[in-house]
Design a protein around this nucleic acid. Structure first.
Lengths: 223, 223
DNA sequence: TCGTGTGAACGAATTCACAGCG
DNA sequence: CGCTGTGAATTCGTTCACACGA
């Protein structure tokens, strides 16, 4: 996909190495809005409308999208369906991703049951835990398997992406195993700073950090 | 830095309205590292060490801290305990915060059982749900209560902060009620863009968005 | 005319580099 | 000497403002 115009779905002639994190998040935003708008039967949408949600300006929307091509029509706006497809493609959602969930506790269960998961192209192919009481139990059409078999399972099922919901203490061991087995990206919910080799993309979600950013805001806002 | 030495615990003569979000997150980072270092019995720590975790430079660390005063000693580094206390104070952790949890599903349970919660000054004073089968059930020393009583409960118990783990469909109603009852900050896990009045600070955690930022990275990294 | 696409201007955040203090 | 604290330089992200095409 990255080279000069091979056919069809390859408009990415530039390398996008400099797209900021916040810009990527905004693309996710636009995507969700486009889903709504499309469901409502609208055919086109303006940058102004895309911006209306969340403190984004229309110029920002246009700039974001212009990094990836020009999808809009002057005087009209953006065609809803096309734009949705293009953003999905940009975000890498034009395919399914094989995901493993490590940690079958309450948080793992919450992730597992979370609807938007499978629907959006994420295919959960394994659930792993260390607890003998949980191993073998069925979650939907998957049986919980032993973390001891992680490497074998990841390799055999070509897991590309993992969600880690283990306790903090075991998280580093788990990501070492995941990285060793070839997993390319990890979403970590364990409240622990993890070290991963450079070829692995890691993202942390940390409840305490989020709460602290709230208490900071409350403490320092001018009243 | 901060103006002419008023006393003791009030070095905040300037308004910190311009501290960036990422800077606040880094403060949380430093705090966690300081906890470790302190537990290990160290007395001082350098900006270089504080930076070592996560792609932060030592200059960044010094700059971050310098916004709030000068806590370090040249040639020596920062005194661990003092710096920890100061960062806690900066983040608003010098007190406890009264928290309500709305949504007693799997995610709510995960948040509830999350250890680092109560330990770090967050005092959970209510758990609410709509499900009659759940209402009345005990979670630890709290009974799950009816969301219909939210306003009364929030007011009576002086809830300042709420964590929303309801399904997407009910999240907006819940935050409307929370905001109406005087809650000042909300951490939202429901996958829905929420509207809150300006005096309420809202933070979203969205699984799909996090996954999309991973698939974007995987799709566009140069191999 | 309307709204995109985009250079140019601006502003915010990070890094550099070094003076100065312990 | 070692390491902080901080202006200056730089990089990065956002907003402005308008030419241009549908």
């Amino acid at each position: 996909m990255t080279g000069p115009a091979s056919g069809l779905y390859s408009p990415f002639v530039k390398s996008f190495t400099k797209i900021s994190d916040s810009a990527v998040r905004r693309l996710s935003h636009y995507l969700r809005f486009l889903d709504d708008v499309e469901a409502a039967g609208r055919r086109t949408v303006s940058s102004e409308e895309l911006a209306a949600r969340g403190g984004i300006t229309s110029a920002q929307v246009r700039k974001d999208l212009s990094h990836f091509g020009s999808f809009g029509k002057r005087g009209t706006g953006y065609p809803v369906t096309l734009l949705r497809e293009r953003i999905e493609e940009i975000l890498g959602l034009g395919r399914t991703w094989r995901v493993a969930l490590v940690g079958a506790g309450k948080l793992g269960a919450a992730v597992f049951h979370y609807g938007g998961f499978r629907r959006q192209g994420f295919d959960l192919v394994a659930v792993l835990d260390t607890d003998p009481a949980k191993i073998g139990r069925r979650w939907g059409d998957l049986a919980i398997e032993d973390v001891a078999d992680l490497t074998r399972i990841v390799k055999k099922r070509h897991v590309e992406l993992a969600v880690v919901t283990t306790p903090a203490a075991s998280a580093q061991d788990v990501v070492d195993a995941l990285a060793g087995a070839g997993v390319e990206a990890i979403l970590n919910f364990a409240p622990r700073k993890l070290v991963v080799p450079p070829q692995v993309t890691l993202r942390d979600v940390n409840l305490v950090m989020e709460l602290e950013s709230l208490t900071f805001a409350l403490t320092h806002r001018d009243r």
